[in-house]
Design a protein around this nucleic acid. Structure first.
Lengths: 341, 341
DNA sequence: CTGAAAGCGCTAACAG
DNA sequence: CTGTTAGCGCTTTCAG
């Protein structure tokens, strides 16, 4: 009987037809997928752990691109993709334990996330995307530090020395304001830590005292946060020539704030982002483009690949510096005298 | 032992601690979720069936809003949300059979979709969103016919009598071109059928011969399709005063095409949409807003609500006519003579 | 090709 | 409070 459903080739078509027909007449709804999964030890689905609020995942183009890539990989493999209900507020790890999946993809969570810990306890393969950077687990990501280092060098070459930084949340606690160097080093979000490290390295090499550079953090990730953070930096340090944002969303917010203040970009203020989302491209933002869809696809492939899983694998995707129209050489005092403000 | 994991209250904390400690030492990874699901008859997840390509779902703001609402409802209930791998090309229904879920949400599929048939065979509750309109199943949607009827009346009141229509795909076969009245009536996508019916009713009442109104269909749903479809209508019927699109995405494409032709909107051509997505609002589109996020949330609640399930329930959400800046009274020939073209 | 039986790992019920 | 046991529905194996 089982054969009728699962191995059409093991019995005659005629018999198969008869069995199925009878089953239907008896009201048999087909094999129970859960019982089958128990027996075959395959759930036919992978779990996705996003620690951010779900709304965030569906509104941030970068997260969305990742999700799309992952979903495509799953679709190719005929595998379901299960969104694990794990909001950062509720520390209810039970959902991770309850999920009947063959593996997990963990996207951009802090290294001290309890849901992540629960995932790692499960005896199924796991792929971590972007962060955190933990040993012994498959990983997909980019080299955030180098990418940001390169962007910084681009600005340094233009002549920028007085800069400000706007970054995303560095830990699970809300800290909408200035960030000490200690907090930068202790950041639980590895991606943000790496990007800041890249900046610190480049500017230190250029003779800038990094501890003096204003770095402002925002917990929420949207353009309003970018606006507020940019305002905070510009209020305290009106003399900066460039505002470096660790995401395009924040940078787009900063652009709004610059406009509101009558600052021309890039003549009066250089603004840069990170991610390479479509909205940024449209705005001509100077930024770093990362292949978000490919990241999702790679994570899915890595998880679903049945190949050797002897030692942790790591996939590093390449990024590209996008030279937009929001970065230019800072005007010197002399130039301002000459050409007017 | 099971109690130690599932009923902390049934035994002393001390014992619980000891049991868990021992379990860990023995390398026990915790209860297997699949076996538990088999025993408890609860999978702790709901399945989402989207028949469109997944990429579509992640790029169309309306679908995305629905997905977000559904995901929120699931998160609130601590339930997983599983995306079922069902692309329209591959007619592989197995994924539906394989999915270990407690119920299905079906979003916007044609009434003859094989995956839908497979879902309905499964002995679990199902909620259909938008379409198709099948009996005996819980449903969430809006009154597409009335909403479009109201929009049409708005245009008729302005004086529009010569109109063209651009609509989304009406069936699973590709038909990028004109649509006969027969095809309109036979459409497998109920939503599109209802919107066209609303238009037909309003314009017929206003004395317009609906069979003479050009209706153009596009299989793909993006602005490029909207542009091409608008071009097709305008090429054949340059005298129309209004172009009614059955989605905002198509309408935004039509706006591009109008601009390319040097037609001013709304002075030379009225354009309307449907959905009320953010991009449309930004463009000042005259459209019908529907609560997409609420639709998703309502679908989730309906599915997860353990209440009486004696007879099929139906949730109808309300829509709102948005009077934008893309619709105005058509200029008469006399006016054109007077004011210039 | 057919039928019978073991057992996947768990939870719930019940007896001690 | 603790230990034992039946059985969820399936697939796989093995004997006929």
């Amino acid at each position: 009987m089982s054969n009728a459903y699962n191995r059409p080739d093991q019995l005659s078509p005629e018999l198969r037809r008869r069995v199925l027909e009878t089953a239907r007449r008896l009201g048999y709804p087909g094999p129970d997928p859960v019982a089958r999964s128990l027996r075959t030890r395959k759930a036919g689905a992978v779990g996705l752990l996003l620690t951010e609020n779900l709304s965030y995942a569906f509104r941030d183009p970068a997260a969305l691109g990742f999700l799309e890539g992952l979903a495509l990989a799953c679709e190719d493999a005929g595998t379901g993709l299960m969104l694990i209900p794990a909001s950062p507020e509720r520390e209810d790890v039970a959902a991770v334990h309850r999920a009947g999946v063959d593996g997990f993809v963990v996207y951009s969570v802090p290294d001290d996330d309890p849901h992540l810990a629960a995932v790692l306890e499960r005896p199924v393969p796991t792929v971590v995307c972007d962060q955190p950077d933990i040993g012994n687990v498959d990983r997909v990501g980019i080299d955030d530090r180098s990418a940001m280092y390169e962007l910084a060098q681009h600005l340094i070459a233009m002549g920028h020395r007085r800069v400000g930084v706007v970054c995303m949340r560095l830990a699970r606690d809300r800290n909408d304001g200035y960030v000490s160097v200690d907090r930068q080093h202790a950041a639980h979000f590895h991606v943000q830590r790496a990007r800041l490290a890249g900046l610190a390295m480049a500017f230190s090499e250029a003779g800038v005292d990094w501890s003096k550079v204003p770095v402002v953090e925002r917990f929420d990730h949207n353009t309003a946060s970018g606006e507020a953070a940019a305002a905070q930096v510009l209020d305290r340090d009106p003399s900066i020539t460039a505002l470096i944002c660790t995401s395009d969303i924040l940078a787009l917010g900063a652009m709004n704030e610059a406009k509101r203040r009558g600052l021309r970009v890039p003549e009066d203020l250089t603004i840069t982002g990170f991610d390479g989302i479509q909205e940024a491209e449209r705005a001509g933002l100077t930024t770093v483009r990362q292949p978000v869809l490919e990241k999702g696809r790679a994570a899915g492939k890595l998880l679903l690949d049945v190949g050797e899983r002897t030692r942790p694998r790591s996939v590093n995707l390449s990024t590209e510096l996008i030279t937009g129209t929001t970065a230019a050489a800072p005007r010197t005092i002399a130039e301002e005298r000459w050409f007017g403000p």
